[in-house]
Design a protein around this nucleic acid. Sequence first.
RNA 1: GGUCCUUUGGCCGAGUGGCUAGGCAAAGCUCUGCAAAAGCUUCUACAGCGGUUCGAGUCCGCUAGGGACCUCCA
Length: 494
Amino acid sequence: MSLKIYNTLTREKEEFKPITPGHVGMYVCGPTVYSDVHLGNCRTFISFDIIYRYFKYLGYKVRYVRNITDAGHLEGDRDEGDDKFSKIARLQQLEPMEIVQKYTLGFRDVMRQFNCLPPSIEPTATGHISEQIRMAQQIIDNGYGYVVNGTVYFDVEKYNKEKPYGILTNRKMEELLEGTRDLGGQDEKKGRLDFALWIKAKPEHLMQWPSPWGMGFPGWHIECSAMSEKYLGKQFDIHGGGMDLAATHHTNEIAQSQACYHTSPANIWMHTNMLTVNGTRMSKSLGNGFLPGELFTGNHPLLEKAYAPNVVRFFMLQTHYRSTLDFSNEALQASEKGLKRLWDAYENLAKLPANDTAAADAELDANVNKLLNEFDEFMNDDFNTAKVLGNMFELVPVINSIKDGLIRADALSSQTLERLRQKFKAYLEDIFGLQSGSAGNEKLGEVMDMLIGMRKEARAKKDFATSDRIRDQLAAIGIQLKDEKGGAMSWNLE
RNA sequence: GGUCCUUUGGCCGAGUGGCUAGGCAAAGCUCUGCAAAAGCUUCUACAGCGGUUCGAGUCCGCUAGGGACCUCCA
């Protein structure tokens, strides 16, 4: 049973064969930190967090590099003018690095709330200026770059004569040229598709560095090529990012690495699909993005209530990463309830008594094992988290029925029960990165034990007024009491 | 305009040509002092038309709707 991953480059699922056995090198394009990350950005990082976690579950040593873009991202499509950081800094009368610091910290905070593991390395563009200059110089030396008035351009048409430039998105040069706007002769580039490796800075420009071509700053694409090479080598296993990056950013990365090192940087290119709102892509430029904070507080005109990070993560897990996912209150509420049901069953599972018998219900035992076996099979088929969750939900009635005595306690063998526990823990917590939503502190647990004891006493005396009051008042402050078979009671936080 | 993707039951969504994914909602029942929770049952859909096939949601063609990329964006 091998892991298969869909490769954008070949447009098919391929068996994953690491370059170094037992190790995975993965580079994911991170955020540009001149504004808050919105939920669409988060989807990509959550998807790759699960991929990262699954590789670790499989026993791989993973070097996961995700950059922070903190320089060089231009406002328009022409390789001139201010970069985004300088522009915002000027508007807010701050140092560009104050902007960078603010949104970097904000990004990390959001990632922590979503329970995304930090990458192994989180390099910044400003921290790797010399590497980028060196790479641009090498590209010039190799004949694929040219300098015009202090700016270095990549010669796409020359490159395309030797290597297919549009290979990643399956486009031919002629098609690309047709789709490109005519810039009206004011352009200093030789070819319309040429892009900047290094950009000349005007004297008043806030972020600039010395280079062989004068003061300037790096183009957007070169940072990922330079940093991925530095930390993962000229060729590594996986390069990922949002689908919107494939056509331009990743296409240029491949061209840069080929022109510089004569190798295609990554064996597998993975692209996550977009998060949409009412069928339209959530994006910074359209301004239809949700900020994670707005979601967690419910403070947004389109939101009917607040949703916990856990719920949002679960919501995303129910869809395959290469499908678009449409954002709506209804879908999130369905996820909230579904997650609660699943998590309750998971907590019930932990409480089931162990037995050391053979399976009394061999058919059920076999079926449970089949469903558990499929967890890995589904994940190995291009990380199909949705199918794993489908199986988990099929196991929920089994768990709950054993707990309630509707299925006899020894129906499953002790080994099967133990497997069930291990798989649920591995998947829910370690791979999917979901967390307990009702984690009260110890004191709360003791107080609840006391109240439950009082309610039991009241019920024994048929003092239903008291027992209902305890239940209703707890419900009012968001604690749900559940009467169980045999008079036991459990509770959780809403 | 070019390239590509997509269209699944009330909603969200998974689907390797042959057997009901799953979640949410809804309805009925069981359990319960009542309620909630839980369990059981019901709800069999694949945009339209045509084709290939013994058999298609799954392959092919056409038509219609939606979307993405081609320009900064995960």
